[in-house]
Design a protein around this nucleic acid. Structure first.
Length: 512
RNA sequence: GGCGACAUAGCCAAGUGGUAAGGCAGAGGUCUGCAAAACCUCCACCCCCGGUUCGAAUCCGGGUGUCGCCUCCA
């Protein structure tokens, strides 16, 4: 069974066949760097990250390019407001983009072209369009003649006759366009604006031309996959196609993929509506509806529990559910680290990257079937949850009863498969999280010894209280121990077992 | 007005003609002084109306509703 993807261009789900066998070229529209990224951006780039990881997992060599739009009115406005330059503003937010995305475990692209690096390539492309009759200069600007491109509207399903000019009240009189549907390739400089020299006079590129130029410069005339938010289908991607294909007479991209919007209370999350939550606010506890730091992996899980093409509703309840769900997956992923030694697994094997599971592995088969179906991550996650649930249960058995139900030989491939498949989705336990877990325990040797004495004494006292049936005191001591991160388990045989919460090397301890 | 999506339990969500995965939350029970863990049990007339079929959440037609785009937008 091949991987199939829903292609906006054909409006169908079709088998994915790259231009060059085994290799994939992929371009996704990046951010305009004038502010911090919000959850809508996270959803989009998380989605492309998973696509890219899955293509790799499927054995493809992927070349992934994502641009930064660093020339734009909004950047300019911000620069003016701050009394600085466009370059200063965009460089700051490019930096912050990387910080946010890396926390979400989004892999870096292979290449990040900037518009300011491609002014020459843009001139060249506009020049070709002009020569071929698709572009005309007017009033210092250069426009694309939409009527000249017969296939205009192929992506968005619009025909030129149905395009309603000025549908939203644009001021059409203020432009030198020959036709309202035409769009700017080059915008003549206004006073006090940054401008670049060009054959048509000083100015700056129109919005759409950058992607056409950068794709051609970095990946060639035809790429395999072009991705972006669903809100970019029209006019941005439609115009990219018009520009690129008019110039090259070749398809710009064979597969057009679009992700659904993030909504809040059923309404699109966007800058203009002001209903956005930034990634760093959410991760750092700055979201009013859930004012605690949210594990980045819980956010990733939240995003992957929906299908990438469908709208994703951002609510407090949904985030809370994902936080809980991540606890389960994490328990499964950490199973080997927490319990492997007790099960006799060699430390070297635990620490090395997971082995590729065998072909006949039914979990892998189900995972692949789901992912091959237009990246059905919710279905794929069901497989991970089944594995993680089982391992979590076994881990609890081990901690509370001293032994697992299944044999370690059976658990080993389950754990390896879980880690392997989770990695393909970018769900990984980060060292940072490990650090948190350790900090909750009692790590320092001297302190631990000292406190262990106290713990032993407390448990001793509690046992005495229990024997005297003074349960109020017994429960009080349980609470005190819990506050120290100590979980006390009374066993059926009368023994008391205790362990530290969330610590990797917690050997069970006994008190008589 | 035009174009395009989507509609499955309290919430998220799978399902692609053979009798409703999974997650989160919830209820009851066994065990326990309490707790923990484990185990067992319960929780969907698949938006509506027609049609095709032995059989439809799944296919077709018609409604209804929600969302996105047509203006910067992931």
């Amino acid at each position: 069974m091949p991987l199939t993807l829903t292609n906006t261009l054909t409006r169908r789900q079709q088998p994915f066949i790259p231009n060059t066998p085994g290799q994939v070229t992929m371009y996704c529209c990046g951010v305009t760097v004038y502010d911090d990224c919000h959850l809508g951006h996270a959803r989009s780039y998380l989605g492309w990250d998973v696509l890219r990881r899955y293509l790799r997992w499927r054995g493809y060599a992927v070349r992934y390019v994502q641009n930064f739009t660093d020339i734009d009115d909004k950047i300019l406005n911000r620069a003016r407001a701050e009394g600085t330059t466009m370059a200063m503003v965009s460089e700051r937010y490019i930096q912050r983009y990387f910080e946010d995305m890396r926390r979400l475990n989004v892999l870096d692209a292979d290449d990040y072209p900037w518009v300011t690096e491609h002014i020459g390539a843009i001139h060249e492309l506009i020049g070709q369009l002009e020569t071929k009759g698709y572009a005309y200069a007017a009033g210092g600007d250069v426009y694309y003649r939409v009527g000249q491109f017969a296939d205009y509207g192929q992506l968005s399903g619009r025909s030129q006759s149905t395009l309603q000019a000025g549908a939203s009240g644009r001021d059409l009189a203020a432009t030198a366009k020959a036709d309202p549907a035409d769009f700017a390739l080059w915008k003549g400089a206004k006073p006090d604006e940054p401008a670049w020299e060009s054959p048509w006079g000083p100015g700056r590129p129109g919005w759409h031309i950058e992607c056409s130029a950068m794709i051609r410069a970095r990946l060639g005339a035809t790429i395999d996959i072009h991705g972006g938010g669903g809100d970019l289908v029209f006019p941005h991607h439609e115009n990219e196609i018009a520009q690129s294909q008019a110039a090259s007479d070749k398809p710009l991209a064979n597969y057009w993929l679009h992700n659904g919007m993030v909504t809040v209370n059923g309404e699109k999350m966007s800058k203009s509506l002001g209903n956005f939550t930034t990634i760093r606010d959410l991760l750092d506890g700055g979201w009013a509806e859930y004012p605690q730091p949210v594990d980045p992996m819980a956010v990733r899980l939240f995003v992957l529990q929906g299908h990438y093409r469908k709208p994703l509703d951002f609510t407090q309840a949904a985030i809370a559910a994902s936080i809980n769900g991540w606890q389960t997956l994490k328990a499964g992923l950490l199973f080997g680290d927490r319990h492997g030694a007790k099960l006799g697994w060699p430390a070297v094997a635990i620490q090395s990257s997971p082995q590729e599971p065998s072909q006949a592995n039914p979990w892998v088969e189900r995972f692949q079937t789901a992912m091959d179906d237009d990246l059905n991550t919710p279905g794929a996650l069901a497989v991970l949850f089944e594995l993680a649930k089982g391992l979590q249960r076994e881990g609890n058995c081990l901690v509370h009863a001293g032994q697992t139900q299944a044999s370690p030989d059976v658990l080993w491939p389950q754990w390896q498969t879980l880690v392997h498949l989770a990695q393909a989705l970018g769900l990984e336990v980060t060292p940072e999280v490990d650090g948190d877990a350790r900090a909750m325990g009692l790590d320092d040797g001297a302190m631990a010894a000292d406190r262990s004495l106290t713990i032993a004494e407390l448990i001793q006292q509690r046992q005495v209280a229990r024997q005297q049936r003074d349960f109020a005191t017994a429960d009080d001591i349980r609470d005190r121990l819990a506050a120290m991160g100590i979980v006390v388990v009374d066993q059926p045989d009368g023994k008391v077992r205790w362990h530290r919460q969330q610590i990797n090397d917690s050997e069970p301890n006994y008190c008589p």
